[in-house]
């Protein structure tokens, strides 16, 4: 018993150490970051259109909007485990504030889902419909980044 306890403590210490060292490849963190990259991948179609950098193309806009609708339906349940904030591990900008107010975090994700749904409904209807819908979506992104993502 007296021998096993320090051994256990050492093992636990090693496990903790290994977890911390490997944390930047935490699959949940990777999954959620990949998800945000896919958001950006589709915004890279819609953004230039509303910025006047790319000619409006109803089909391309609708495809990107459809993608964003479906991407934002992905269940977030397993993407945000406790202990994957930027104070606990490297390789993430997720602030501990997320886990301090998960209800508000979920509400902000809900606002993103609502914006994506609205966008999907109007993306093919011309620039005048697209512009405010992309603005609403960008606003939903920013609202969450404001409170829950650290500066670089």
């Amino acid at each position: 018993m007296s021998l096993r306890r320090p051994l256990f403590a050492t093992t636990l210490g090693l496990v903790t150490f290994a977890t911390a060292a490997l944390a930047d490849t935490d699959p949940a963190v990777e999954a959620r970051q990949s998800q945000f990259k896919l958001f950006a991948h589709n915004l890279a179609v819609l953004g230039p259109m509303v910025q006047g950098q790319m000619e409006y193309d109803a089909e391309a806009a609708q495809t990107a909007a459809d993608n964003l609708f479906h991407l934002t339906r992905h269940d977030q349940g397993r993407m945000w485990p406790e202990g994957t904030d930027n104070a606990s591990i490297d390789g993430t900008r997720a602030l501990p504030a997320i886990w301090e107010d998960l209800d508000d975090f979920a509400a902000k994700f809900g606002a993103l889902q609502a914006a994506a749904e609205n966008l999907q409904g109007v993306a093919g209807d011309g620039m005048d419909a697209l512009r405010p819908a992309v603005g609403q979506l960008g606003g939903a992104c920013a609202a969450c980044h404001d409170d829950y993502r650290s500066e670089r």
Partner: peptide
């Protein structure tokens, strides 16, 4: 103008305001 970076990330934190 839009808060979109060239890689279509969206400004957050103090820069959003």
């Amino acid at each position: 103008d839009s808060g979109f970076t060239p890689h279509f990330d969206v400004a957050g934190g103090t820069m959003a305001a």
